[in-house]
Each structure stands twice: as C-alpha cells, then as structure tokens.
C-alpha cells in the first residue's frame, strides 16, 4: 500500500479578532487578515505585542472575546467538542519549548501527533495502525533524524528536539502549521537549520504556515510575507523586500540593534 500526500488546501481568515484576558489585558485589538493557501507567513513584534495570542486563536488554544477565525471554511472560534478536536487535528503546532514528553521515546512523541485522527480506544491503548506507524517514521526521516526513533526525547539536543516537534506536527498531515518562536531556545546555526527544514517541508506539502519570530534577519530570509504587530494591532503587512529597517523600527517602536538579529 502506498499513500500519497497531495497539496494541502489551507486558508486562514481572521475576522476582527479581539482577545481580552481575564486579567483585563487586551492582547488583540481587532485583527483582520487573510492568509492564502500555502503561504509562509512570519509574524514579528516585541514580546507582549500579541504574536503568541494571535497564533493561538488559529487552533483555539486562546478563544477570541469577539470576532472569529475561519480555517479551511471551518469557524474554529465557535467549534466545540468533537468538531473542535477535528479542526485542531488539521492544524500542526510547534512550540518554543518543544513541549515534548521528555520521558517518552521520540517515536512515541511523533505518534502522538496521530491521536487527533484516531478512534479514542486506539489512542488510549496505543494501538496505532501499521500505516500510521510507518508514516510517523517517515516524518522523522523527513526532519533528518530517523535513527533517533527509540531514543528518549530528553536525550536529544535542543535542535533535535525541535525537529521531533516538527515531525509530531507533520504526523498530523496538517494543512496549517503554527510555530510559536520555534528557534528562540536554539543557537544561531541550529536556528537556521530548523527554519530551513520547516520551510522546505511547508513547501513540499503546501502547508500554510504562520511562524512567530523576533529576529529581523530570519524573518526576511524565510518569509513569503511579513506581518508586524505592536500592542495587539497589525502595523505592517508586506513582502520581505518591503520590510526595511525603517519598517522594523516602526514595528518595534525603537531603533533596531544587534539583539534583533540572529546572525549566521
């Protein structure tokens, strides 16, 4: 049996999304955006600008106080229960701190990406179909560490752990991929390796991708489109060519310096 992965049909629409936290903090103040299928979007801004909140409204880890997010024609903001889980299983996510189960093997972490699509009893008993197991190993191969399948996750380096995170998201066969500061915990060379892996895979599978970054040079290197946020508002939306140093100073509200660059 040979399975194929066709081009994904991701498409994300933010419709006047506002988020007010219980503390009274207004994290998003009316964001409207449309992201076409297959686009690789980098969101930049200082910490506290609302990047993390924005990305989490896409899979409803944060529920907007008003407005809505539509992913692939599904209003995920108002989806609940089974419908919400089904919608989430189509959206991969990778995290700054990797969020792997450290005491589990790498392959078990990758397989956990299949849980959303599996009947509950199979998940609870860890009875993954053969095709899913093969697919998980293939995901691991695609991020370049097939030989680490049976190593415990906490025995890997940071870069390898983030690759496992990508493989887990990839195992979902997602049409959308979210990445919240995926390289903030990594050193510069590893950062570039992980970002190019992410970009390559997104291209190959036609996955719509939103990445939060705060490094200017990396945003310019990898993005199809850059969105700048400040105080919960989109203040820049353009191509990497349009994102000049002046534009970044506008987004950050201060002169840019070396700390804003990851370097090579």
């Amino acid at each position: 049996m040979t399975e194929t992965v066709g081009p994904a049909v991701g498409h994300i629409a933010f419709e006047d999304v506002e988020v007010v936290y219980k503390t009274g903090l207004k994290a998003l103040k009316g964001v409207t955006l449309s992201i076409p299928k297959g686009q690789f979007v980098v969101v930049v801004g200082l910490s506290g600008a609302g990047k993390s909140t924005l990305i989490r409204t896409v899979n409803n880890l944060v529920t907007p106080s008003s407005g809505r997010v539509v992913v692939e024609g599904v209003d995920i903001t108002h989806a609940r229960g089974q419908a919400l889980r089904a919608a989430r299983s189509d959206i991969g996510m990778i995290f700054q701190t990797f969020n792997l189960v450290k005491r589990s093997s790498v392959i078990r972490n990758v397989l956990s990406g299949r849980l959303g699509d599996l009947p509950a009893w199979r998940g609870v008993l860890s009875a993954f179909p053969k095709a899913d197991q093969a697919y998980a190993h293939d995901c691991l191969a695609r991020v370049g560490i097939p030989e680490k399948a049976y190593v415990r996750a906490d025995a890997l380096s940071g870069g390898q752990q983030q690759r496992v995170g990508i493989a887990r998201a990839l195992a979902q066969r997602p049409s959308v991929m979210l990445a919240d500061e995926p390289v903030a915990s990594l050193d510069p060379p590893t950062s570039h390796a992980v970002m190019s892996d992410l970009k390559r895979i997104a291209r190959e599978d036609g996955i719509t991708t939103i990445v939060n970054l705060h490094f200017i040079d990396m945003a310019r290197d990898y993005a199809d489109r850059i969105i700048g946020m400040r105080d919960g508002v989109v203040v820049f939306d353009g191509t990497p060519q349009e994102a000049t140093d002046a534009a970044f100073e506008e987004i950050y509200g201060r002169p840019i310096d070396d700390k804003d660059l990851r370097g090579a």
Partner: peptide
C-alpha cells in the same frame, strides 16, 4: 513543487 510523495510502508524494527 508540492508533488505527491510516496510513503514507504515499512516500520523499522525496534532495537533489541
């Protein structure tokens, strides 16, 4: 660019 990729249907055996 996003050509369909064949997926090998093999599961590497777990180490001893």
């Amino acid at each position: 660019m996003s050509a369909a990729r064949p997926i090998p249907n093999v599961i590497p055996p777990a180490p001893a």
